[in-house]
């Protein structure tokens, strides 16, 4: 197996006297899809911040492949009306690209007309797609999504996951996704990691069957983009007040 794109060893983070992360060993290989799930306050956002370099871990090591190209889709973008920014200009900020590359990317993420629109005027779903295009235009080897599907309803989440799968098939990048949904994950995930301060469990998702009860649970038209993840915990977090699994 080749060297991972990014790897952590015994990673720990103490913030304001509270231990947010401890003993996290993690690695992601090129082309892999990994979903990290965890309840609120489980440290999954902090972990992502460590990976992109926004926060320095207080223990352990992070190793990145030298020259790693990373695309990042933030949870949301705080862009107010005072900041004029057309979608096209926003894409040009990400990386050097030609006009036709940008047009093709907007078409790929399903907002082909958006080029001249103002960022501050986009709807939630459109903004997600434009942020995805922004992250992809630099041809990343690793695409990192921080709860990118938050605020979308279930059909929209399924649509967004299908879009990511589709994009991955064409661009062959690895995907690391963080989600607060503990049980419903992107079915294309190669691995699911449950994080709650440390790695609680790790496994593969169960693809949702065509059984009617699943259909009811996930609504119609999700076309298999969603899957269940079953946790296998050998411990619980009752003392911390958020048990699950």
């Amino acid at each position: 197996m080749s060297a991972p794109l990014i790897e952590t060893e015994n990673l720990g983070l103490t913030y304001n006297g509270r231990q947010v992360l401890h003993h996290v060993d993690f690695a992601i290989q090129g082309g892999e899809i990994v979903t990290i799930v965890g309840p609120n306050g489980s440290g999954k956002s902090s972990f992502l911040k460590c990976l992109i370099g926004a926060v320095q871990p207080t223990e352990g090591h992070i190793r990145r492949k030298p020259g790693l190209r990373m695309g990042y889709v933030p949870q949301k973008l705080h862009l107010d009306q005072a900041f004029p920014m057309s979608v096209d200009r926003f894409l040009r900020l990400a990386a050097k690209s030609t006009a036709s590359e940008r047009a093709a990317m907007l078409k790929r993420v399903g907002v082909s007309d958006a080029s001249g629109w103002q960022m501050a005027a986009l709807s939630g779903g459109q903004l997600q797609r434009v942020l995805l295009a922004h992250a992809l235009i630099g041809k990343p080897e690793l695409l990192v999504l921080d709860e990118a599907a938050q605020g979308l309803d279930q059909p929209a989440v399924a649509g967004f996951y299908r879009l990511i799968e589709d994009v991955r098939r064409k661009l062959h990048c690895a995907i690391l996704m963080v989600s607060h949904d503990l049980h419903v994950v992107m079915s294309a995930s190669d691995r699911v990691i449950c994080l709650n301060g440390h790695v609680c469990c790790e496994g593969t998702p169960t693809v949702v069957s065509e059984a009617p009860e699943y259909q009811r649970l996930f609504g119609h038209g999700t076309e298999g983009a969603l899957a269940l993840y079953q946790h296998h915990h050998d411990h619980d977090h009752d003392h911390a007040g958020h048990s699950h699994g």
Partner: peptide
């Protein structure tokens, strides 16, 4: 360009 990106979003700038 880096000033613009960092004014937009701190974490996005870091990921860049």
């Amino acid at each position: 360009r880096p000033l613009l990106v960092s004014s937009l979003d701190r974490e996005m700038a870091l990921a860049h």
